[in-house]
Structure formats: structure tokens, C-alpha cells
């Protein structure tokens, strides 16, 4: 007699292989969906989902004429290889150690020579502005580069809204100081918290943005969630991450890398192939994913737009 045994699992119940392989993403997406649905009243429900560890799409992102048409680096490069010393000094430390970082709720303090000082919730802070995709080259001072599709808001629009007083000549940004979450801050490799600054005309330049996302999604922790600076004609270290304070001042801020080593890092940090870092050449760079080095371009290729900011300056001295 032939005994037919019904299989314990019907085929319809088997998870499709593709989905199975992406099960983590699937779980995250499901979680994000659930949280998103619960938070539909809030326009930034998707952003909240990100705080739970998921990857959430940003809605209504406009394209921008400032974007490059160059080949974009894969998501894995952008989110798996970067410097964010708050999470460790190796290139994959931010990805490893940033996973549990809590980037919501988040408050940004606006201080100094400005008409509207105060504490702003991140979502209230970003909401008045339309999100734009800006595909920019990023050139690290360590002579590697990437092309990254940021999502952000023009810094100039934010500054106009905040209404700086006439005496404000510089903008200073500060990263969160929280050694409990940011393990790297327990080691005094830099004078924490991280500080960066821009001259007011640099900050008002249309290329400068505050990024809140990349690849059309909410900014991952390791890339500086929830909000970071992107100044594409300057070396990457100017792009301060996880900003908690914006201060308008009449004095040139002392940025962390300049404090750490004034001989090697300056305030301006414009990408400049003719001014070498004291320890290595800046004439060429390796675009991640390419084998041969390529020549580094003045102002990282944004010279047409930004050279005018520095026309009266000796860039060898103001490096």
C-alpha cells in the first residue's frame, strides 16, 4: 500500500528565495511599514521608522541641476566605507558601531548672532524646505573619492529662514557629544565634540546643503544621521555629521582637525591638487571602484561655481 504523506509545509507557504535572502530588509521594511502606518499623521513617520533600524524612503524628493551625471558609487560603498571617528577610526567602524545610534527624537540648537535662536526639533527644522537630490562628488583628504546621491535642503535657505544678524560672519556646527552611544568619543583622538565651520558666503553658496538622506532614503546613522553638512568643493572632513548645534559668530571657528593638527589641516580645506597635505600628495585620488588613480580637480571640479569665493585669497596659505 502506498502511503501518501502530505508535506508539512505547502509550497504556497514557502518564502520565495529572493525574499528569503533579503529577509533582514524584509523585516525592517515590515517594521518600517507598521511604524509608518501608525505615524501617518506625522509627515516624517518614515523618518521615525529609520530610528528603528529600517531603511525608509523619503517622499517628494526633487531632482537638481547641481547633480553630476557621473557614475554613482554603490550603496555599500557609501554606507560601508567612511570616516566618522565618533564610532571608531576604521573605515567600517561607523557601519558596525553606528547601528544602534538613536537619531530620533533630535534637537538642534540655534545660537549666537541670529534673530531666531532656540531649540528646534529636527522634523520642524527640516519641514519648511523641499527635499532635493544632489548627486555630488566627495573627495576625502586621504585621497579617495566617491559619487554620492545625497538628499538634502539648501543650507542657504535654512540660514535665510533663521535670519542671522548683520555681524554674523561665520557659521559653526557641532556634533552630538554622547560617549555612551558614540564609543569613539571615549578615546581622545580628537577634541570632542567635533566642530566645523564655514564663512558666511560659503555657507550661503547654493552647492552647500544639509543632508538628511542618501539614495532617496533617510540618512543612515553611519553617514551622520539625522542631519549633516555636505560641502562638495571641500575635503570630506568639512562635512560634519549628526549636528546638534548651529552657531552664528563673528569669529572664525576652530574646526576639530585644525585643532588636532594645524600644520596639516586648515579652516578652508578646499580640494586643491596643487597644495599637498604635508604627508601625502593631493594631486590624484582613487575613485572607489576604479583601479587607476585619477587627477584631482581644483575645488573638486566645482571651480566654475565656487572659485569666485576665493578670488582675493592665497590658497597656499589659506589651505
Amino acid at each position: 500500500m502506498l502511503i501518501r504523506k502530505t508535506p508539512d509545509i505547502r509550497y504556497s507557504e514557502v518564502t520565495p528565495k529572493g525574499l528569503y535572502l533579503r529577509r533582514r530588509e524584509f523585516i525592517h521594511a515590515a517594521a518600517a511599514g507598521a511604524i509608518g502606518a501608525a505615524a501617518t499623521l506625522s509627515p516624517v513617520g518614515t523618518a521615525r521608522a529609520q530610528a528603528q533600524g529600517g531603511r525608509a524612503k523619503l517622499p517628494n524628493v526633487r531632482k537638481s541641476a547641481f547633480s553630476t551625471t557621473e557614475k554613482i558609487n554603490p550603496y555599500e560603498d557609501v554606507t560601508g566605507y567612511n570616516n566618522f571617528y565618533e564610532f571608531g577610526t576604521d573605515k567600517d567602524d561607523p557601519m558596525r558601531n553606528g547601528q544602534k545610534f538613536i537619531s530620533r527624537p533630535w534637537t538642534i540648537r540655534v545660537e549666537g548672532l541670529v534673530k531666531t535662536p532656540g531649540s528646534y526639533d529636527i522634523d520642524t527644522f527640516v519641514k519648511p524646505h523641499a527635499l532635493e537630490e544632489r548627486i555630488y562628488r566627495l573627495r576625502c583628504v586621504e585621497a579617495w573619492s566617491m559619487v554620492i546621491p545625497w538628499v538634502g535642503i539648501p543650507l542657504a535657505d535654512v540660514i535665510k529662514r533663521l535670519e542671522p544678524l548683520p555681524g554674523a560672519q561665520f557659521v559653526e556646527f557641532t556634533t552630538l557629544l554622547d560617549p555612551k552611544q558614540m564609543f569613539g568619543q571615549r578615546i581622545p583622538v580628537l577634541d570632542w565634540p567635533y566642530i566645523e565651520g564655514l564663512r558666511m558666503d560659503e555657507a550661503m553658496h547654493p552647492l552647500a546643503i544639509l543632508a538628511v538622506g542618501l539614495y532617496g532614503e533617510v540618512l543612515p546613522n553611519q553617514n551622520g544621521a539625522p542631519i549633516r553638512l555636505v560641502v562638495p568643493w571641500k575635503y570630506g572632513f568639512k562635512g560634519i555629521k549628526s549636528i546638534v548645534r548651529i552657531r552664528f559668530t563673528d569669529k572664525q571657528p576652530r574646526n576639530s582637525w585644525e585643532v588636532a593638527n594645524p600644520r596639516e589641516y586648515g579652516f578652508y580645506a578646499n580640494v586643491n591638487p596643487t597644495v599637498d597635505h604635508p604627508r601625502w600628495s593631493q594631486a590624484s585620488e582613487r575613485r572607489l571602484g576604479e583601479f587607476l588613480r585619477r587627477k584631482t580637480l581644483m575645488f573638486n571640479g566645482y571651480g566654475d561655481q565656487v572659485a569666485g569665493l576665493y578670488s582675493a585669497m592665497d590658497l597656499r596659505r589659506a589651505f
Binding site: P74, E76, G80, Y81, W144, R286, L288, G289
Partner: peptide, 12 residues
Amino acid sequence: TLTGEAGPNPID
């Protein structure tokens, strides 16, 4: 290097 586990900048 062959499996891609050397990261996005294998030369480094």
C-alpha cells in the same frame, strides 16, 4: 579580495 570582503577600497 576575491570575495569582495576586502571592502570598497581593497587596495588600501
